[in-house]
Each structure stands twice: as structure tokens, then as C-alpha cells.
């Protein structure tokens, strides 16, 4: 499925800036829209950066809540992901049993429209934008071989 505006940059929250900064697409995405001549300006500049900040904040909030307040962490899950967890019992309890890796800082967040990937110091999360904010679609994700999906402990099926 294809969604979202052309915007993908990195942001660091509670952590030094990444050594390899993600290339900002703010200008280039605007160029794309101008070249097209019909598509309204995506507002990928400030809005894009604010979405990166919001996605990073949601990722960090989720990681911090898993141990301290699993109920809150459950509320930060995307509906389908939460539904999947609840098939094994109440969400907070199931989430605690997943033994997710701990993370304390965001290294890099890439946002493309309504989808984001947040790389933290101890975990990688995938997120999606909902009307009430960013929600975690997958957590506890480890990279596999090139061109293979991440192997995630928590995800919606």
C-alpha cells in the first residue's frame, strides 16, 4: 500500500545527532510538487519535522512505558497490533511477557507520509499515523538479511 507525503528525514531525541544524517527531502519534495504543477504543497518542511518529532516522542514514550506503565504502552499500540497481543490475554500482561529490549534514546527517525521507522539505542520500532497521533505497529524488531523484513516480537498480523 502506498501512502503519505514525500518527506523523510532523521531526528534525534535525547541522543546526540546521528553520525550519518538522513538527507532532508524538504526542498526536493517541494520541487516535485512544483514540477507537477497540480499537487498542492505538501508542507513537508516544518510539518515534516514536527511529524518526525512526534513519531520519535511516541516511540520513546512507548519504550519507557513498557516496563513502568504497560497500560500506557498498550494505548500507544496501533489497533491491529494491540488486537494481536490481546489474543493471548490482557494487553499489559501480554506486552510484559514479550520481554522487549529496553531503549532510552532515539537515534534516528525516518518519516514517509503516515509511516515511520524509529531506530532507538536498544530497539527498532515501526509506527503509523492515526487521527489521534503516532501509534506503534511493530516493536522489538531486529534486522534480517538485506531486503528481508525485520523480525519483530510485537506486530499486527
Amino acid at each position: 500500500m502506498v501512502r503519505g507525503v514525500a518527506c523523510g528525514t532523521a531526528v534525534a531525541v535525547g541522543h546526540p545527532a546521528p553520525t550519518v544524517p538522513c538527507v532532508s527531502t524538504t526542498l526536493t519534495s517541494r520541487y516535485a510538487v512544483v514540477a507537477l504543477g497540480v499537487v498542492l504543497l505538501s508542507g513537508c518542511g516544518a510539518a515534516g519535522r514536527s511529524q518526525q518529532g512526534a513519531a520519535s516522542a511516541a516511540a520513546l514514550s512507548f519504550e519507557r512505558s513498557v516496563a513502568d506503565d504497560p497500560g500506557k504502552a498498550c494505548r500507544l499500540l496501533a489497533p491491529k497490533t494491540r488486537q494481536d497481543l490481546e489474543s493471548d490475554g490482557p494487553c499489559p500482561q501480554s506486552l510484559r511477557e514479550q520481554d522487549l529490549p529496553q531503549a532510552h534514546a532515539v537515534r534516528r527517525t525516518q518519516v514517509f507520509g503516515t509511516d515511520a521507522m524509529a531506530e532507538l539505542d536498544g530497539d527498532t520500532l515501526f509506527l503509523a499515523l492515526f487521527p489521534d497521533g503516532w501509534r506503534v505497529t511493530a516493536a522489538g524488531c531486529k534486522p534480517q538479511a538485506t531486503d528481508r523484513p525485520y523480525d519483530c516480537t510485537v506486530k499486527g498480523t
Partner: peptide, 10 residues
């Protein structure tokens, strides 16, 4: 690229 990456993340 943006649309493709959106799909990649999903």
C-alpha cells in the same frame, strides 16, 4: 521514493 518507503515501512 517516498511512496515506496511508505510501503517498505508497512
Amino acid at each position: 521514493r517516498s511512496a515506496y518507503n511508505s510501503e517498505q515501512i508497512q
